[in-house]
Simulated scan of single mutants.
Amino acid sequence: MTSPFSPEELAYLEAHKNDSRVSQIRWVYSVPIAAATLSTVMRLWAKRYGRNGITLDDYLILLATTCLIGQCASGLGFGPPHGMGKHVNVVSAYDQMMVRKGDYVFSHFYDIALVSVKLGILAFYYRVFVHPVFRRVVLATAAFVLAWGIGITVTLFLACRPLAAYWDRNVTGKCLVMLTFTYFTNISNLITDIWIFLMPMPMIWHLQLQTKKKMILSLIFCIGLATCVVSSIRLTIILGRGRPDFTWYYVPLGAYSVFEPLGGILCTNLPIIWHMFRKRQATLINASAFKSHSNSNSTPTIGSRRSRFAIALGITTRDRTQNGSGNGTGLGGDSVAGGVGDWQRLESMESQKPDPTIWTTVERVDTGGLDEGPSEAPLKPGMKKTVWNVRK
């Protein structure tokens, strides 16, 4: 049987037979599992924490994460144990067959992961943007992506007849030219990525927002273009599939095939997670400020709550009593008995004389449950007279 290698290539393989990319394979497939799982779990937690509910785009991203984990698991299971990451001249025929079988399983997970990410982004667009024309464009793009995914999945199932001929060279069969199929898949995938990530730009720039905010929104949506860069790099190394030293050249191809859907997953998860963290941080800061304000004042009283409510309505209160209780309400909204600073606030309030053209005086005599109404008679023990300045 004629060797697929030239004499120079055989000499190179013999000189580098101890080279290995096994360590690269392990971290290339381990990091995406952790990153995708963590980001998707945090996304779902953020949606539940914000009480926004789990929507269709969340389920699609969850499916994409599951397929990405399947990619990495098949790469780890069929790769290093069977010689992937080493030159083919030191890999047995059986291990070569297992690497090809792993590539077949890997390819199915890759295709479904890409379709799920694209449909998840489109579902998010449909939920956020309500313009009818844009929604029709989203639906048309989703139909194309779905048809594209079904087409490449069915084609991969029919790649060889019988199917075992795809990975076993001892089985006689008829197979498609997979290099041409791979080129078509990657070029159409790159064009679709660019189209999807640029779709919302016209909608953003027609919003009634400041130019700075429009640019920030555009940048957030264009982060996904990094996935297009990965697709482009993957397309440049696709020739590795046609080389006979496939156990060596599958390593960079598999790496880019994993990081491409991972980039889409992260681009859809991180904005949601970041927004929820900012919202939670603002809530904690407000709660801390309220607690600090409460602790810095003296023990609140019923009058203090009444004064805060009155100030919110534009009413100032002054508590003039002659029964020696010493209660009063200041701007801080707390009791002023016993504190020098509180007494100063009370004196400042007492020195402010209301403008008669703006304010009118309302008097109330509190007898412990019986309202006597305004009266000029001297107050009896246990009675309290309150004067309210109310806007006319």
Rank of each mutant, 00 (worst) to 15 (best):
P261S: 04
K279C: 09
P261W: 07
M276Y: 10
V258H: 08
W248Y: 15
S257H: 08
G254M: 02
H275K: 15
T247Y: 06
L266E: 05
L266K: 08
C267W: 04
G242F: 05
M215Y: 10
K214Y: 08
K279G: 06
I238A: 12
I265R: 03
T227K: 13
T211I: 14
F221I: 10
G224F: 01
V230H: 10
I273E: 08
A255E: 09
I238H: 00
C228W: 12
L209W: 13
W274L: 14
G224E: 02
T268N: 08
F259S: 01
C267T: 15
L266V: 10
R278D: 11
M276F: 11
H275Q: 15
G263Q: 09
T227D: 12
G240V: 04
D245E: 07
R243M: 13
P244I: 03
I237E: 09
R243E: 13
L209A: 13
R280F: 14
L270W: 11
I223T: 11
L239H: 14
T227A: 12
R278L: 15
G242C: 10
F246R: 03
Q210C: 11
A226R: 08
S218A: 15
M215T: 07
N269K: 06
V229S: 12
L239R: 15
I273Y: 12
I272M: 14
R243S: 08
G242I: 05
I272S: 13
F221W: 08
G224S: 05
F221A: 00
R234A: 05
K213N: 11
G240M: 07
I220W: 05
L270E: 02
C222K: 04
P244Y: 12
L235H: 03
I265S: 09
R243W: 05
L262G: 09
S257N: 11
S231Q: 05
Q210E: 15
